[in-house]
Structure formats: C-alpha cells, structure tokens
Design a protein around this nucleic acid. Sequence first.
RNA 1: GCCGAGAUAGCUCAGCUGGUAGAGCACGCGACUGAAAAUUGCGGUGUCCCCAGUUCGAUCCUGGGUCUCGGCA
Length: 311
Amino acid sequence: MSKVESQTSLVIVVGPTAVGKTEISIQLAERLDGEIVSADSRLFYRGMDIGTAKPTPEQRSRIHHHLIDVADPRETWSLSLFQRAASEAIADIHARGRTPFLVGGTGQYIHAVTRGWTPPAAAPDMSLRADLESRAKYEGYQRLYEELQQFDPASAKRIDPRNVRRTIRALEVIRLTGRKFSDQRGQAEGPYRLLTIGLTRPRPELYARVDARIESMFAAGLREEVQGLLNSGISLDLPAMTSIGYRECVGVLQGRLTVEEAKMQMRRATRVFVRRQANWFKLDDPSIHWFEVGRVQIEEIESLIRSFLNL
RNA sequence: GCCGAGAUAGCUCAGCUGGUAGAGCACGCGACUGAAAAUUGCGGUGUCCCCAGUUCGAUCCUGGGUCUCGGCA
C-alpha cells in the first residue's frame, strides 16, 4: 500500500461566520457520502442552539454531525480535547468507509488537526491561573512578562507583553512541567491528505447577513435560551458564556442593556469576529480553494472533491 | 420672531487668547500550540460648515451667511 493510499483523506470546509458553511457542507456530504466533524468552539455545548447558529435537528437528521452537543456549558472544552476527539471521529468515519468533512469557524482548532500540532500536555490549572491573574492585577502585567522572559525568552519573544492570557498559559506550562513552553509546542507532519475548501462572500454582504441573523435569533427566542442558562445557575465567566449574543443577552436580562443596545453590540462583535477569523485562512493561501458563495454552483465544489477523492 | 449654545474623522467629541489637528468607538491589517465567539499588537481616516476680512500665517480672532439644538414667544 502506498503512503497516499494509507493516509486518510480529509475535506476541510472553512469560512467566516454566517457565510453559509452549514448548509453547503451538508449538501456536499449528502452528495459524497460524508459525515461532518464540527470544528467550532461553541457548538460543543448543549443548550446553546440559537445564539451559536447550531445546525438544526432537521439538518442534523440529514447528515451525521460529530462534536456537537458533547459537553455541558458548565464544562470547559479546549483545543487539546477537541483535537483528540476530532481525530477519533475522523478515524471512525474513515473506518466505516465514509468521507470525513471537517467544518467550522474556529481556525485554531482546524490548524491543530490539519497541521499536526502537539500542544504542551499540561492541563489547565484554574487555581494557578487565578493566582497569576491576581498577580497581574496587583503587581502589573510587566512583572509576569519579565518572569516569562527570564524562564523562557523564546516564548516571551512570541507573546505580546500585554497579552496576559498567553503569558499566563506559558508560565502555567513551565510551572507544571518544569520545562520551557517553547520546547513543548510542536508541529508534526499532518496525518491527513487534505483538500481545503474556503467559502467567502464580499464583506458588505456578509455583514448584512450577520445583521439579519441577529434579528432572527431574537425572533427565535435567544433571550429565553439565555434565561434558561442563567436559571441553571451557570457562572458568567465560563467560556460558554463569553460567546457573542450570550454575554449581551445577560446584559439585557440584568437590565444593563436595552435590546437595541444588545443587538448593536452583537453586530459589532460579530463583524470583529469575522475579521479575526480571516486571519486563520487567507484569501492568498495557495492551499485553499476559495469559492464565493452565491456565485458558485454546488456541483463545481462537488466535482473538485470528487477528483480529490478519486471517485 | 427673539435670546442662548453649537457646526472638527463614518459616529460621539477634545483641541492650551493664532504655526493646517487628536481620543474613544467604528473601519482595516497582524499574532495565536489545553480559555480562541477568548486574549492581544499595529495602522489610515479629515475642503476643521461657507464667504469675506485682519495677519507672514487662521480650526482658533472679526464681520456676514447657512444649518442644527435648547429656551422664550
């Protein structure tokens, strides 16, 4: 068996939020006997459906989706957990003779899978983080950063001094493992044979879709969904509750924001999000096959995938 | 109609009795290896409402206009 034949073929579908990934990827999976592995840091969580624009039950009945609704919102899922679960799901789909599609908007997670990242194995230590956070607050972020410079200059060079989050993570790994953070983050040969489909739309069109989607989220009961989470006693500083739409609705429910203000903040935050997502997948990346949604026929993408899969 | 206040970046506004401008947000670009829809770095934005005058020089001073917002009729 040649190396190529022994490698699992993986189709990636990327693109900004609201571009139309969900529907297009389902159609492609239907035509190509595929299953979808979600690469989205918010779709893990059960009970967060409206604000995350999760694929609907109807959509999910058409195609098997993996890594959706796999966690309680009170849990914290992470890059490493995702990476492991995604590899398993892909292997499982492949073993059953079907085609895995990795679809989602969380660029970091997709790179971790496709580029064979090996993140440092030290699991998050919340009390250590809280400790370091309070030091950053009372002694200043400079102190933490100086500490990082001292113990791991290579990491310090790659992290902005004021980026307390990343500084803390690096210090955490050093503290927990006794080794430098920079020595532990690796990148292996990616384990898959890849075809990356990028979906795009002109920014103004995308922004208009975002605005419309925000309206329909409220119409569909976003506030009630958030109220339900609050009723369950969820803590507001969990990652799940930092999601766009959720934090703003909390503001409304606590009387800090009007609905109009919340919508405006959501529009802004989502547009910023769109731009930041674009940092992970560039239009001039030669390894990505870009298609403008609305101007491309699904058959065109399908036939590209077919030839990749040798069908 | 009268009396006040104002007109500066896409928006909200700052601008020391004159030397052609600035902050937040927005917008654009970048970083990211167990919080990533998180966190964070960098960068443009302009007939300083119009016309005249004073001045070597007006966003700033003077006069006139236009418009906006208050208050009183």
